[in-house]
Nucleic acid binder design. Structure first.
Lengths: 342, 342
DNA sequence: GTTAGCACTCTTGTGGTGCGAGTGCTAAGA
DNA sequence: TCTTAGCACTCGCACCACAAGAGTGCTAAC
């Protein structure tokens, strides 16, 4: 078990290292205000903390640096979230300042402001488009053999895709199809669209249309909505500002991993409610073993959820980021729900 | 004037430096096959070339490196474009392999393949959306006070925007408006949309609709199509692979500049027909003073044009890139024109 | 239990040295 | 007159030694 003083020293050490990015030594610490014991005492305590795996040395006679275990203990037990400074709140609120009516726009702005505020990289996941509900379907013919399919959802999101249409098809056939589609598919989620298309609509079309086959199958192809359309980044280049990252190779790997939307679920586990902190090797991706990721979820209405993530060095300003994310998560939930209900 | 031999030595020097990224010395050059004179002779010639400003030394006793003037002379007079190797052609053609029906998709793929092929960063500008012609307009009400405006162009491009509608507006009013818009605006380019809206449509709407004012003005706001929607990148991180870039600060500046779409016109001058090479400080942006940019235009149909740019170090493989861009430009023009006509 | 003192360790910066690759110049050779 | 061998010279770079500084662990005294 840790003594009161050990806890205190661990906390101060982590705080100091987060702030300075330099290994912290006993003399340095002792000079700080609020510390009433000598360097030697601190050395003894630090040696104990190192023995327990909370601190590390970069070399035999260096100051100490928190280990991953140290960071973990710090965020689990020593984090005293302080209220956000006014400037930060003002900045955060500026996201919603302009009357914005599109969720996408709000999320984009959030990503930007968040990265500016933190100097880290922010990743925001919008709500899964595939849970949106079809409000209207239409097909606009472009030429004799192609048309564009348009799906509008209840949230005002628009999906559109060009697809081929069989040669010499009667325009009235397309109109018929659109009518059938709208009759049968309004109110269905994008996710279920494909299934419902097969199950119900195909039957009806068989009855009412002559050349349903080809048209139907190409249209069906077109309306597969991909999963990953909803990722927004802020401050992708901020890693380059961090003194912790100097190895170009590692930077490249990290940036590569973050760009690749396939990896997003590894960075931000889906379905995670609330706030989570993943430190160094706790991350699933080895390219992120020098990073910490803080994620928080937010809600839109009762059902849909999105996520916010901040990727920074392990030596991240946890206190500040946690407060920022807490606040932003709340604000976003409120604001987006409002937009949804409007 | 340069003698035949000086030209030869300049060319070989540049070629060698492009390939090795190391200052090239007289001994090293003399060892190369195809060189029949001694290191001393080469030294003399190199000294002359340096005197004329085509070569530079990194320090008093180092090998030579091409100066910007040297590169300029090289690309202007010494570039013998060789036919592309088969592998490259195969790769390039793979862009059009899958049956793709959307220009956007083709351009995206081009950017990707191009960056893979070159190991540099590619920037592709699609044709200016604002020159596309309106094919259909529609408005889908989302709630009592918002709706989404959708514009489909002849190319199958879809613009959509959520905009507020006055409270308690009769749905039939909206329908009326859509009808009027479609009557008057089909065939107009997105660019002219705003103007035509003011000039013609407003009058008609005044006659037929009661509460045209508010609805009209919010709609008008919504259909302003921004200019810069059509930039695609490939291999943004490839700069990190180049041995020429090691200064994190410069890398950051460069990446910053490239991400910012406002700067794109400075990187790719608009309206440039054909192929252009800009070396180092010939670039408008100081962040790019260590880069070379090769741009080429391509055509879609008779009117619209787009651009391809490759951003790499001054020590770029000009020969190869020029051939690649020439070929891709031709292929893209052909393929996109085909899609447009289909 | 705390701390002053001290020997010890390790990093960092600096100056010296040798090697290698390159140059310019001179003088001899073609 | 052009070419080239030879040579002295210049840097960059890697290597080493050395001193300064910051930090540690341990011991002994308070």
């Amino acid at each position: 078990m840790l003594t009161e003083r050990q806890l205190f020293i661990l906390k101060v050490t982590v705080d100091d290292y987060i702030q300075s990015a330099q290994p912290v030594g006993s003399n340095q610490l002792a000079k700080k205000s609020g510390i009433s014991f000598s360097p030697a005492t601190i050395r003894n305590e630090m040696a104990d903390l190192e023995g327990m795996g909370f601190l590390e040395k970069t070399h035999t006679s260096s100051g100490r640096v928190p280990s991953e275990r140290g960071y973990r203990y710090y965020v689990d037990h020593l984090l005293t979230p302080r209220p956000l400074p006014k400037e930060d709140i003002v900045q955060l609120r500026s996201i919603f300042e302009e009357k914005i009516t599109e969720t996408e726009e709000v999320i984009k702005r959030s990503a930007m402001i968040l990265s500016e505020l933190t100097n880290y990289t922010s990743i925001l996941l919008g709500p899964d488009v595939r849970r949106h509900i079809v409000k209207k379907l239409s097909i606009v013919p472009l030429s004799s053999n192609s048309a564009v399919a348009i799906i509008v959802t209840d949230t005002g999101h628009v999906e559109n895709r060009i697809f081929p249409i069989p040669d010499g098809l009667n325009p009235s056939e397309i109109e018929k199809m659109v009518n059938i589609l709208n009759e049968r598919l309004i109110g269905v989620s994008l996710n279920d669209l494909h299934k419902r298309l097969e199950q119900e609509t195909l039957m009806v079309m068989k009855q009412h249309m002559e050349r349903h086959g080809e048209l139907f199958s190409t249209f069906k192809q077109a309306v597969i909505v991909p999963q990953d359309k909803n990722v927004y980044y802020g401050g992708k280049l901020n890693i380059l500002n961090q003194p912790d990252f100097h190895d170009l190779h590692k930077i490249r790997n990290l940036m590569d991993v973050m760009e690749e939307t396939d990896h997003i679920p590894m960075i931000i586990p889906v379905g995670n409610q609330g706030l989570h902190i993943r430190i160094g090797s706790e991350n699933a991706l080895s390219a992120m073993e020098d990073c910490s990721v803080i994620t928080v979820s937010y809600d839109i209405g009762e059902e849909q959820t999105g996520s916010i993530a901040i990727v920074g060095p392990k030596r991240m300003d946890y206190k500040r980021i946690v407060s920022l994310l807490d606040t932003l998560s709340g604000d976003l939930s409120k604001e987006l729900t409002r937009i949804l209900r409007n």
